[in-house]
Amino acid sequence: MNAEEIKKNAEFLIATLPGRKIEGSEKITVRYKNLVNFARIYRKTDTKYIGSEEDGIVAIRSWANVYTIKTLYKLVLGEKFQQGGIERPFLLNTNKMLHAGNIYDWEGCVDVKNGDKLTGTASWGEFWFVEKNKMLFGNLHAKIKNQNDELVCNVTSRIGIRPGGY
């Protein structure tokens, strides 16, 4: 891909994506074994996180990584739109995408519990181009809710895409 094409694609995405809602949603069922195994990676020993299934446990905060990645992969990789009358995927080469930053906002949110059924929806935020390295950066805002329509987390993932990936 030449420099002109790179710039043209970056300008198109910067003009098109901000504020756009991504179609579809990601459904995640929270399972006991997964919560425990995840907590053990972070050397958690408290029964609040790794206790028995009968007593009930909650997810450690880092379990947000699970719904973030599932939502990011499913919705971003499935995103398609028209550019100059031709359908194109958001990412032209998935290996060119980097995770550049992340915000977890739990203000007013409830805990994730074993058996919860979560739904992730997302929309695009601001996009910007860095001339020096031709990287395109953008924010993806995801809202994660449980089966009772209670908010579990607001996630902002900042992605960076190297030339050839957008």
Binding site: R61, A100, G101, N102, I103, Y104, D105, W106, E107, R158
Partner: peptide, 10 residues
Amino acid sequence: GKIIRINIDM
């Protein structure tokens, strides 16, 4: 207490 928000640049 409770964690409210974490904002990180990688």
